[in-house]
Design a binder for these strands. Structure first.
Lengths: 206, 206
DNA sequence: ATGTTAATCTTGCCACTGGTAAGATATCGG
DNA sequence: CCGATATCTTACCAGTGGCAAGATTAACAT
């Protein structure tokens, strides 16, 4: 047993998890700019070089956070869908609103997962998590037709049409470019989002 | 005359401009992560504290770069429109393609202008530059109806519908999420963009 | 012209960052 | 029980931005 007691042990027991937790919290509190390996390490009560063995370098930790971030994004979508009517179009809209809720609730993490350097290897786990979110959205779009995902011609364009709209809305919202009519208050964006998303997909149900 | 000769003068003569130029270049070459005041200062041949007097701190320089960035974005839109048919819908599409071209050509600057901290004062000049770009887009949308900008009900929603689509496309493109059909090659995105943008605006002409 | 003021730039310093190297400590397999 | 290995610490390094104090030049009033 790896010493689950809260006392100071030389070996932490589950440091990788603890670092990711602390990193996520730090990210939410100070943003990506103020993110510091030393700070997250101190938060866990560990020296600043401890994470190196688990993540390689700082980019490795960022990657791990991105993986979690994509999972959080997916969670946010399904959570919102659970509160919506089971109608295919409403489910699609709900997933978009969940997407927006995640962006609003943790802007730094949201931006992090979409600004990973397209370097050599973004990490297979990260790509898998990203694909899971993408495929979920694709499934919602496909449900409009009642068919299997990607089964009809133009399916990819249709999915990207949805994704770009939701994502663009999220980014502009975070950048503070939705100001004039709807300011601040939570849920105020829903009406605008529905209009901006367009009605063409509502018509395609069935 | 403030000594326009290229020889070493204690006073640079036009340091503010030179720093912004160097900063823009550094940003394009090393990205926002690798951005360093000391590097841009060295590039101009000046000590690392020289910019402080012109921009305050690093955030001040970032703000100045953002202002230029919004101007570049506007330039890219009008440049693309100049090569397109004068039909209102084609002009709107062209402005979107210019938007995308700018994002593709200078990703770091593009991301910079849309990730300014919504802090106390983003700088009036930056906001003005951003508004100029926004109003240009709004003008293109209004031209679909032949009317003055924002003159009819639902105009704002319509403009935001366009903006979110273009912007979302740009962001997902930079994040590397347009992979499957269209990879890498320049201009390959145009066909996908036209489909994703939707046909509803083409129908509204007149 | 001449001296005073203000703007511009430099040098030297500080705390902080992430990465490396070498050593300390604990777990694990024989 | 002992050696091998994983985990973590301490000590150090180059690099970063900001501040303070001083050097140099321009702007300006008289």
């Amino acid at each position: 047993m790896p010493k689950a007691s809260p006392k100071k042990a030389y070996h932490h027991g589950d440091l990788r998890r603890a670092i990711i937790d602390a990193g996520e919290a730090e990210l939410a509190e100070r943003g990506l700019e103020g993110f510091s390996l030393r700070r997250v390490s101190a938060r866990v009560g560990v020296s600043h070089t401890a994470p190196a063995h688990h993540f390689g370098d700082a980019a490795g930790l960022i990657n791990a956070l991105a993986e979690r971030g994509f999972h959080r994004l997916l969670e946010a979508m399904v959570a919102r869908q659970a509160t919506a009517p089971r109608d295919a179009y409403e489910q699609l809209i709900a997933s978009g609103l969940g997407y927006l809720a995640f962006a609003e609730q943790d802007p730094a993490l949201f931006r992090l997962i979409f600004s990973l350097p397209k370097g050599p290897d973004p990490g297979a786990a990260v790509m898998a998590a990203a694909d899971a979110a993408f495929l979920h959205l694709a499934g919602n779009v496909a449900a409009l037709h009642g068919a299997e995902p990607m089964a009809h011609p133009g399916a990819y364009e249709e999915v990207m049409a949805c994704w770009t709209r939701v994502h663009g809305f999220a980014e502009l919202m975070l950048a503070g470019h939705l100001a004039p009519p709807c300011a601040g208050r939570a849920g105020a964006h829903e009406a605008l989002f529905r209009k901006v998303f367009g009605a063409e997909f509502a018509a395609k149900v069935g």
